[in-house]
């Protein structure tokens, strides 16, 4: 088992805790709440959370790097969308600026950009984004051997047993999501948002962009629309849905329900021991688009859980469901109970 190797990567015992930050204030909150590393993006379409009012200017990123480093926390920069043909320079500039600003690693998904970063900035540590959907040992070995990728963020489609098998077969580190929004598609390859709105997480950094989202009260129901499509309607008192197509409710053949995926969020806190035993180097929290309140609560909860596990104590009870989409949580594919 590769647990010892994974634990050696962090400053604290146990897997590293990788936390999101969409703003400088969120970054400071994540650092204070116990993050080992914080991941951020520039305020453009080079990252997969290109939302209004979110992300970092170059100056803000420089200050964020200093703030994190002074407190022993690493800063990872996500440049994890796929460059548009004819606009590659926007993405290469992001990688160049990441190297210039001294971030601890860049999180990339695109083969061309990986190749650029590996050759232009050989000392820049490379992580493979979940957007690359590298879900088997052969694919991971290719990225590690070809581009020198040091860590791979695994897609959220693998069981704990499959993750352990991958870790036994590869030399580079792996990182897995443990909390936040779930994506049912092969990550980085979904076109549903693009179909409905013309904009996608892969190319533009936004899934179901807010510019195309509308809510309307119709009698006792809240109706959520994305572009020209009604995605869901819920009665008074039911959790409000965010209208992503994959989590919409559909009616067909007398059945009405969530055809692709329930609107629930991932919470794998109870699986921290198993994921650590499976050799995972880092546990990642999703939610760069969320507030300081979310960051403080979720990062703090996972910090306590990881520290408890590392110290051999039982995991503390934590319930973050109220912060989750659908007000409910799942362990997702980590426990494939449907098999």
């Amino acid at each position: 088992m590769t647990g010892a190797r994974a634990r050696g990567a962090g400053q604290r015992p146990g897997p590293e805790l990788i936390c999101p930050a969409g703003t400088p204030a969120a970054l400071r909150t994540a650092v204070a709440a116990g993050a080992d590393a914080v991941y951020c993006g520039f305020n453009d379409e080079t990252n997969a959370r290109n939302f209004p009012g979110l992300n970092f200017s170059r100056d803000e990123m420089a200050r964020a790097v200093r703030h994190a480093r002074e407190r022993g926390v690493r800063l990872l920069l996500a440049v994890n969308t796929f460059p548009r043909a004819g606009a590659f320079e926007l993405w290469t500039r992001a990688v160049d600026d990441a190297a210039r600003l001294g971030v601890d690693a860049v999180i990339l998904a695109d083969l061309g950009l990986l190749n650029y970063a590996a050759h232009r900035h050989p000392d820049l540590r490379l992580h493979l984004s979940v957007q690359a959907a590298a879900a088997n040992a052969d694919a991971i070995r290719f990225y590690a051997e070809t581009f020198g990728v040091k860590r791979v963020v695994l897609p959220r489609v693998l069981s704990v047993e499959e993750i352990a098998a991958i870790n036994d077969a590869v030399a580079c580190e792996t990182e897995v999501f443990v909390f936040g929004g779930l994506c049912v598609m092969a990550e980085g390859r979904c076109s549903l948002s693009s179909y409905a709105t013309g904009r996608s997480p892969n190319m533009n950094g936004v899934c179901s962009p807010a510019s195309h989202v509308a809510y309307r009260e119709e009698g006792e129901e809240l109706v959520a629309r994305l572009g020209d499509f009604t995605i869901d309607r819920v009665p008074r008192g039911a959790p409000a849905p965010y209208p992503t197509l994959c989590k919409g409710a559909f009616a067909a053949g007398g059945y009405r329900g969530h055809v692709f995926e329930d609107p629930a969020s991932l919470d794998a806190a109870t699986l921290i021991p198993q994921l650590a035993d499976a050799g995972v180097a880092a546990l990642k929290i999703e939610g760069r688009q969320r507030s300081r309140a979310y960051i403080e609560a979720v990062v703090g909860s996972f910090r306590r859980a990881i520290d408890a596990h590392a110290a051999g104590r039982p995991l503390p009870a934590g319930d973050l469901r109220r912060l989750s989409e659908g007000q409910s949580a799942t362990t997702g594919a980590y426990r494939k109970t449907w098999r």
């Binding site: 959790p239 507030s291 979310y294």
Partner: peptide
């Protein structure tokens, strides 16, 4: 910064309309 806007929205404590 004490309550999360998304969670307030999911729980229906907060409603938004118009330009999301």
């Amino acid at each position: 910064g004490r309550l999360d806007g998304d969670a307030l929205f999911f729980s229906r404590d907060l409603a938004i309309e118009g330009d999301t």
